[in-house]
Simulated scan of single mutants.
Amino acid sequence: MSSANKDYEKMEELYELYEQKVYYVTYSILNNIQQAEDAVQETFITLYQHLEKIGNLNTEEIKRYILRIAKNKAIDSYRKNKRQIILLEEYQKEATVVADKNIEEWEQRLMSEVQIDTLLKTLKESYKQVFKYKVFYDLNYQEISKLMGMTEMNVRKQFERARKRVLTIIGGKPNDEFRRLEKNG
């Protein structure tokens, strides 16, 4: 029997003996089916790469060795997920800062009420009011909530939607957009 066949049979036997245990360990750390399955696959790839270290297949030492590899693979995956979440949160914060900076620059252009109304024509009336109160009158969400008789959460959501729409309009070519809006108005 060739060495490749022996390795294949050994891996097959390892898989049959330990796949469920490895899955249980990885799932208990990750709490995600697909990520746990990926960690199982990575565990068995690592085992294949270190197959020469494994002698008798059904010993406690080998079991501990395999489950330690599985645990390490799952922890690596967990840490990677955490880093991705942190990066996503940082990106979202940065995007908000950039958006706020764009609005501040836009405010500093000293637009007239007529120009602002032209720009805000595309917004629902309540969105327009929330946006004006927040950006031009510097009111906080709670003050706007009381003024407009709506929940603070609703005010926040309407401001975010209005801000996104305004940023879309002023993002590329604000002057062209103004001309188009004025012609349609």
Rank of each mutant, 00 (worst) to 15 (best):
M1L: 04
A4Q: 13
K6P: 03
D7A: 14
D7V: 01
D7S: 14
Y8C: 12
E9W: 02
K10L: 03
L14R: 11
Y15G: 03
Y15C: 10
L17V: 09
L17M: 15
L17Q: 14
Y18T: 02
Y18R: 04
Q20S: 14
Q20H: 12
K21Y: 02
V22Q: 03
V22R: 03
V22S: 08
S28P: 03
L30W: 10
I33A: 01
I33K: 11
Q35P: 06
Q35I: 05
Q41D: 03
F44L: 00
T46H: 07
T46N: 02
Y48T: 04
Q49A: 07
K53T: 04
K53E: 10
I54R: 09
G55W: 04
G55K: 15
N56A: 05
L57M: 11
N58D: 11
T59Q: 02
E61Q: 14
I62P: 10
I62L: 00
R64D: 10
Y65L: 08
L67V: 05
L67M: 07
R68E: 00
I69C: 04
A70E: 00
A70G: 08
K73R: 15
A74C: 07
I75W: 13
D76H: 06
S77N: 05
R79V: 06
R79S: 02
R79I: 04
K80D: 11
N81T: 09
N81W: 04
Q84E: 11
Q84R: 13
L87T: 09
L87K: 15
L88P: 10
E90G: 01
Y91S: 13
Y91L: 14
K93N: 10
K93W: 05
E94K: 11
A95K: 13
A95V: 00
A95P: 00
V97F: 09
V97N: 05
V97S: 05
D100Q: 15
D100S: 13
D100W: 08
K101N: 06
N102R: 13
E104K: 14
E105P: 07
Q108D: 00
Q108K: 15
L110M: 11
L110V: 05
S112N: 08
S112Y: 02
E113F: 03
T118E: 09
L119M: 12
T122Q: 15
E125Y: 01
E125S: 09
E125V: 04
Y127R: 11
K128C: 13
Q129L: 06
Q129R: 11
V130N: 01
F131M: 13
F131Q: 09
K132P: 07
Y133S: 10
K134V: 07
D138M: 03
L139A: 07
Y141C: 07
I144R: 00
I144Q: 02
S145W: 03
S145I: 10
K146H: 08
K146V: 04
M148I: 15
G149V: 06
T151S: 15
E152L: 08
N154G: 04
K157R: 13
K157E: 08
Q158I: 00
Q158C: 05
F159W: 06
E160V: 07
A162M: 06
K164C: 06
R165F: 08
I169V: 08
G171Y: 10
G172L: 03
K173E: 14
N175L: 12
D176H: 12
D176M: 12
L181V: 01
L181G: 01
K183E: 00
K183L: 02
N184M: 15
N184P: 02
N184D: 13
G185H: 10
